[in-house]
Write a protein that binds this DNA or RNA. Structure first.
Length: 478
DNA sequence: TTTAGGG
DNA sequence: CCCTAAA
């Protein structure tokens, strides 16, 4: 009972001061809907409350009721190309408000209203439609006093407009929301108007207008059929409405991605609350809208968490992704950009082979000298932590190539010794000699044993080149 | 999960 | 650099 009083009081407050309501917006039990309705309808005796109209529905959709009320009003009172812009602005405003995370009907509603209203007043200076239309068509006593300029004004006006025009929108709503009313079905209340507003936007209003013409032309006489049609329209509009327009941040991210700074982040079109109730068709719509959105990674279809490129083979391993400031790389800064994007990089970078720099090779040799072969993960962890594009497998492959380059015989299955290949970037002989010596110490492959390696004598050019030009690092060699 | 080996 | 099998 306290809840009821609480709720009704809040609602009364919301009527007179939309932006001043405080506290959570609690849904009331079903049998309280009459009271709420009375509070909302006030002098409108003709408006019958549908018992089937649940307060939950209202509170549930209340959040983005604001959003679309503006759009609906926009469509009703204005024509021309300004619609899109203004609606986009309003939508943007509400998107921003949404992203603040407080845009739930049950949480801090007044704040959000106030913020949105204020922002709309500041940013959307052309929000005069609420005033103009309300002046002409405001019913007076039942009109909501709007202290807050902007959204609340629009919302109230929108409701009134719907009432007085008796558009198919309301009828559809009546049928949709209170089917128990039957043919009388003129239950148009601000509450319903609000719900109506929740699922209307420019396009939807247009649809309804079209439908209105259709009905008024006498193509359909049965009220129920009309209602069903409009209800269906409404339902589809509701689905459409839940598709999120690309926000400004979205566009910015897209632009960033075009300039190779794609964050790889994907925001779901709606919050979980909406996704939770999403039907397969809705998700289909959303998927398609997402695909149509200008996102470079839109082919993913679903939200894909970004993974650093370095973990393409071992995704569970944790390697610092940011702050690559290794001493040698050009590659480091490049990595941050290239590997930060989710899936694109997987094919993208591997296509472009990353050349091993001399510093990397030296580090690898150092790592092998310290940890030995076969502990590639260890080496990677300790010495290549700042090189996310070098996986342990890469290290091993590079070591294999180094062995080949240093003429350490790696016998393949057929027992044919490998030959020294001429790399495009010839390594210093000192480095090759060190590779050779390390290969003697840590034979690779392990199972072949040191014999096959020890029997090999290094090439003469490697022998004569002492380690004058190469610093051997921490390892001591005689 | 890591390593080895072949392609 | 990728893929697969084996440990």
């Amino acid at each position: 009972m306290d809840q009821e009083v609480h709720f009704c009081q809040k609602f009364t407050n919301m009527k007179s001061h939309w932006v001043k309501v405080e506290g959570p917006f609690l849904p009331a039990p079903l049998n309280d809907s009459n009271e709420v309705e009375d509070l909302l309808v006030e002098s409108k005796s003709e408006h019958v409350l549908g018992n089937c109209l649940r307060v939950q529905d209202f509170s549930c959709d209340f959040g983005y009721g604001i959003q679309t009320n503006g759009g609906g009003l926009d469509s009703n009172s204005k024509q021309g190309g300004e619609h899109e812009l203004k609606f986009g602005d309003l939508d943007q405003l509400l998107d921003d408000a949404n992203e603040v995370g407080e845009f739930h009907a049950t949480n801090n509603l007044p704040n959000t209203y106030a913020e949105v209203a204020e922002n709309s007043f500041r940013q959307n200076r052309r929000f005069q439609l609420g005033n103009s239309s309300s002046e002409n068509k405001s019913p007076g006593p039942s009109r909501i006093d709007t202290d807050a300029f902007g959204i609340s004004e629009l919302s109230a006006t929108m409701v009134m407009e719907a009432e007085f025009n008796n558009t198919p929108v309301e009828r559809g709503l009546t049928h949709e929301l209170s089917p128990g009313l039957g043919t009388k079905g003129r239950c148009v209340t601000p509450l319903e108007g609000n719900i109506c507003g929740t699922i209307l936007d420019n396009r939807n209003i247009h649809k309804f207008n079209t439908n209105e013409n259709y009905i008024e032309n006498g193509d359909l006489s049965d009220e129920n059929v009309k209602g069903d049609i409009v209800a269906n329209e409404l339902a589809s509009c509701s689905r459409e409405r839940r598709l999120r327009k690309p926000t400004r941040r979205y566009i910015e991210e897209f632009l960033d991605s075009k300039s190779e700074h794609n964050k790889g982040r994907r925001k779901l079109p709606r919050k979980d609350k909406y996704l939770k109730v999403m039907s397969t068709e809705e998700s289909y719509h959303i998927r398609h809208e997402v695909q149509m959105m200008p996102r470079s990674d839109s082919q993913c279809g679903t939200s894909v968490p970004v993974q650093p490129k370095s973990e393409r083979r071992h995704p569970n391993k944790h390697v610092p992704v940011s702050g690559f400031l290794s001493e040698d790389e050009s590659s480091a800064t490049e990595c941050k950009n290239v590997y930060s994007s989710a899936r694109r990089c997987k094919k993208y970078d591997r296509r472009r082979q990353k050349m091993w720099t001399l510093t990397e090779v030296m580090r690898l040799v150092d790592g092998i000298a310290e940890y030995g072969t076969g502990r590639w993960t260890h080496i990677k962890k300790h010495l290549f932590a700042s090189s996310p594009h070098r996986t342990p497998i890469d290290l091993r492959d590079k070591w294999r190539n180094l062995l080949r380059a240093s003429c350490v015989n790696i016998q393949n299955k057929k027992g044919v010794e490998g030959k020294q290949t001429h790399a495009s970037r010839p390594l210093p002989k000192s480095l090759l000699q060190r590779v050779y010596e390390l290969a003697n110490i840590y034979p690779y492959p392990k199972e072949r044993g040191p014999k096959s390696v020890k029997a090999i004598t290094p090439p003469m050019d490697l022998i004569e080149s002492n380690s004058l030009s190469f610093n051997w690092g921490r390892k001591k060699y005689e």
